[in-house]
Structures are given as C-alpha cells and as structure tokens.
Write a protein that binds this DNA or RNA. Sequence first.
DNA 1: GGATGTGAACTATTTCACAGCC
DNA 2: GGCTGTGAAATAGTTCACATCC
Lengths: 223, 223
Amino acid sequence: MAPTKPDVPHRTIARLSVYRRVAATLRAEGRLTVYSHEISGRTGNTAAQVRRDLMSIGFTGSPARGYSVPDLADRIAEVLDSPEGLRVALVGVGNLGRAILAYFLGRRSNVSVVAAFDASQEKAGRVTHGCRVFPATELPRLCRDLGVQVGVITVPADAAQEVADLLVQAGVKGIVNFAPTRLRVVRGVYVEDVDITTVVEKVGYFALRNGGAMADEPEESGT
Amino acid sequence: MAPTKPDVPHRTIARLSVYRRVAATLRAEGRLTVYSHEISGRTGNTAAQVRRDLMSIGFTGSPARGYSVPDLADRIAEVLDSPEGLRVALVGVGNLGRAILAYFLGRRSNVSVVAAFDASQEKAGRVTHGCRVFPATELPRLCRDLGVQVGVITVPADAAQEVADLLVQAGVKGIVNFAPTRLRVVRGVYVEDVDITTVVEKVGYFALRNGGAMADEPEESGT
DNA sequence: GGATGTGAACTATTTCACAGCC
DNA sequence: GGCTGTGAAATAGTTCACATCC
C-alpha cells in the first residue's frame, strides 16, 4: 500500500485555494508572516478553521511569528498543483466562455487553458483572448493530443451532455459544468456543477429570511 | 415565538432548485408522477437523499405512484420563491455580466434582473439583453427605489468591495460575488462567493487523484 | 500575553435499513 | 415487489478549549 494518504478534507481543498490567494496578496504587500486570525479576517473563515486546514496539510507555524507567507504559498502549491501544470480545455465560446478565457489567460498560474472549442464555424479558427478556438469536431483528437485533464463546459444546457461525453472519451478526468443540467459520467471522472440559477435562488432564500447571516462556498463553485 | 420554523437544511435549499428544474422537464415531457430513484438518476443525488429533502419541506408522495410532478414544482416554489418575485441588480457588464443577463432574461422565473450597472460611460445608457444599463453612480438611488433584494457582482476584484458596500448601503440583503476576493459585509447580509479559480483548482485536484469520483455542489460557489 | 496545535465535543449532513402501504 | 417515510447509525465538518511555546 502507498505510504499513508494524507487525505485532506474535501472542503479544505477549496479553502486552500483561497488561502493561497491571500498569501499572494500578503507577499505583494511585502509581508513575511501572518497569523491565523488575520487569514481569518481576510477569508471569512474562523481562525480555528484556518489552523485546522493548515494542520491537515502538515503546515506548521510558530506561536511567536505565526505562519511564513512564502512557505505557506509553497506548501499549498505542493498540495493543489501538479508539477507539470493543469491542462484545461474550454468548450463553448459564448459570453461566459470568453469571460473565463479572459480570466485564466490574464494571470499566470498552474492552470492553463490549452484549447477552446465552439460548434459555430464562425468562431472556430479565430483567436479569443490569446487562445485559439477550434471547431468542436476537432475536440476528441486535440484533447487527447494535448493531454487535457479538465474540461470546462460553457455551452447551452441541451448540448452539455454531448460535450461531456466527448470530453470523457478524450480522456478528461474532471469537468467543470456551467450548464444548468446534471451530467451523467462514468465513475472516475470528477464533475463539479456551477449552477448560477441555483446560487441566485439560494442567496434569495437566505437573503429574505435571516436576520443573521454567514458566508459559504459553492460548494460548493463556485463554487 | 413564531409557529415553529420548518428549518430546511442549508444544502437542501440548493438541491431543491435542481429538483424544481427536473420537475419542469418532467412536466414538459408530460409526466404526472415521478419516483425518488428517478429524480436521483437525473440529479446525481441518492434516492434516500431526495426523499429526505422532500420530507424536510413537508412534501409527501404515495408508495404506489411516487410524487406528483406539478405538486412538487408548486411546493418547491412555495419554499424558494417569494410571492412578489426576487428583484436582482447586476453590477459589471463585462462578458460574465452579459452571460448572466442573457441567462436570466431568457427564461421567466421568480428571479428578475431589474437593473444593470457599469462604471464605463460607454456601456451606461445602452440596453443589453433587454436590461437597461445604468452608470454606477445611479446605483444607490436606483437599487433603493426598485427595492432590489439581491446584488450580483461581476466586476474586477479590485472594485468588488466598493460595489458590495454600495449595495449594502442601498439595502440589499444578499450578494452573489463572482469576483475572486472575499467581501466584508455587515451581519444580516448573506454572501455567496462563486470563485471560478477555486472551482477549477478543486476539480483539478480531484481529477488527478481519485480513481473513484463523485459529484458535488458549489456553494458552496459556485455555483 | 498571545499564538499555535490538537483532542474532544459538537453540529451538520448523509446513508442505512426497515416498517407500512399499495 | 417496489415505493415512501423515517428513526437510527454513520460520516463529515466545525468549533471549543486548553496545553504548550515564545
């Protein structure tokens, strides 16, 4: 058996991504160390939660100084990032697709959008936000050749399942689905739905009830 | 004390939104009844979970027939929707903002986007996807006058906090935040972050580990 | 004094499993 | 036989609270 899985809680993974961003901000501010209560203040999680999350990835600080900002960023990268970077394909170059392309092509990170696809002949062949757009017919071959690991689906609901099937056939192991429909995929493919209607309805529900409020994560996300 | 709050679990609220969509699809297919295992198949939740969710909103079916499709849709509407509809303002008419406008103005639902705002003079005054775009300076007055309950923030990260403050001052009780930053708001305002970087990183993490997989829901965000 | 690291308590959520009904 | 409704068990996640260290 492998040398004991660390087994980081599901929710912690999402929060680490946020802590990393805070670490980057702190670094840009020239800060070298940070206390859990300060990460708490910037993320909305409790200080105890921050400490527990960092504990769960085996990252330790010192009572005197708190946590080292650069070490924190490095440790989170070790957990979240794969050494060769994450290769992502985006399918559906509408407004939403363009927004996501612009977002990821703007900053450098472990994630790179290596191809975009669209059914429309008009969009295919063009370059949007620095990413070449291919016709959807090229998807299976190109995703395989480029070693795409994650697909982002930003097509209308009625095309989403078909796209998901193509992505899975092309060897994709994870899908972020923005279409308002649930996808059927084989075991071994991880799907996360980002359902804008659901999020707005949920916020509406808690906004209208509730005197007291709290933050949450889309799950989840939002994710 | 009020006549006993039903107190529907947090996560159930998000799933109800999905069940409602399934109910609408079933209705369109002419189906009058549905079994929990079928809702399960269409949403990826277990049948037991579906039954427990429906139980928690006091909705019952019959062992012989399952659940009534129209009654289900009605009951979910009673729980999620406010009688007068949810009034939403969208701030930031970039690609993402336009995508969301297009989405909500396309279908009729309890949610209506009653105003959109943008800092750019160029965009203000125009009509996008059937929704008039106002300059950001009009936000406080207009949101108050229109009785906006929920704000959707689709501006860049560095403007998000400022926008959130304006929305809260204008009496908004819920915010859906698509900017990659955590907002500070007073208690009583419900914030849900939909963080696309976080979602992609999370999917990347579970896609690369994992032989077995499962679906999930943003919140937490993602939504 | 104020911070981390963490067992233990607590809360939330999901799943099991089965009685009762058609 | 197959389905709903639901206590009870199991699991997941969060918070408490305090020993320990600087």
